[in-house]
Computed example of a mutant assay.
Amino acid sequence: MHISHNPKYTMITPWKSSLHEDFNMKNICRSYELMEQTLKVYTYREGERPVFHQPLTKGIYASEGWFMKQMEGNTQFSVTDPRKANLFYMPFSTRRLELFLYVPNSHSSKNLVEYLKNYLDDVISSKYPFWNRTGGADHFLVACHDWAPHETVLHMSRCIRALCHADVNEGFVIGKDTSLPETNVRSATNPLRDLGGKPPSKRQILAFFAGDINGYLRPILLQYWENKDPDMKISSHMGRGTKSRENYVQHMKNSKYCICAKGFEVNSPRVVEAIFYECVPVIISDNFMPPFFEVLNWEAFAVLIPEKNIPNLKNILLSIPEEKYQKLQMRVRRVQQHFLWNPEPVKYDIFHMILHSIWYNRIFQVSPR
Rank of each mutant, 00 (worst) to 15 (best):
residue 331 R to P: 02
residue 229 D to T: 07
residue 308 K to M: 10
residue 325 Y to M: 01
residue 341 W to E: 12
residue 175 G to K: 01
residue 337 Q to V: 12
residue 44 Y to S: 05
residue 203 R to D: 04
residue 206 L to E: 05
residue 308 K to D: 09
residue 146 D to S: 11
residue 272 V to H: 06
residue 269 P to Y: 02
residue 271 V to A: 07
residue 133 R to S: 13
residue 135 G to V: 05
residue 184 N to E: 10
residue 303 V to H: 09
residue 188 A to H: 03
residue 354 I to E: 04
residue 328 L to T: 03
residue 102 Y to W: 11
residue 200 P to T: 01
residue 8 K to P: 00
residue 303 V to F: 12
residue 223 Q to R: 15
residue 57 T to H: 12
residue 341 W to C: 01
residue 177 D to A: 02
residue 186 R to G: 08
residue 66 W to M: 11
residue 156 M to Y: 15
residue 368 P to G: 04
residue 107 H to F: 12
residue 170 E to L: 08
residue 225 W to K: 00
residue 357 S to Y: 08
residue 256 K to M: 13
residue 301 F to I: 04
residue 329 Q to I: 03
residue 313 L to W: 05
residue 326 Q to R: 07
residue 45 R to C: 05
residue 218 R to F: 12
residue 333 R to Q: 13
residue 132 N to L: 03
residue 204 Q to G: 03
residue 24 N to P: 02
residue 99 L to V: 03
residue 332 V to P: 06
residue 23 F to Q: 05
residue 6 N to C: 13
residue 275 I to C: 02
residue 191 P to H: 01
residue 198 K to P: 04
residue 353 M to V: 09
residue 181 P to E: 00
residue 239 G to W: 02
residue 134 T to Y: 05
residue 279 C to P: 10
residue 36 E to F: 01
residue 132 N to P: 02
residue 344 E to N: 15
residue 61 Y to S: 11
residue 338 H to G: 09
residue 57 T to M: 14
residue 80 T to D: 14
residue 137 A to V: 02
residue 345 P to F: 14
residue 58 K to S: 14
residue 339 F to V: 10
residue 200 P to H: 07
residue 9 Y to G: 07
residue 312 N to M: 07
residue 83 R to C: 00
residue 173 V to A: 08
residue 121 D to V: 10
residue 302 A to E: 03
residue 367 S to M: 07
residue 152 T to P: 04
residue 289 M to V: 15
residue 256 K to A: 13
residue 319 S to L: 07
residue 98 E to M: 15
residue 3 I to L: 13
residue 32 Y to D: 06
residue 130 F to P: 02
residue 277 Y to W: 12
residue 108 S to W: 10
residue 191 P to G: 00
residue 24 N to I: 14
residue 258 C to E: 08
residue 328 L to D: 02
residue 14 P to A: 07
residue 311 P to I: 00
residue 16 K to E: 13
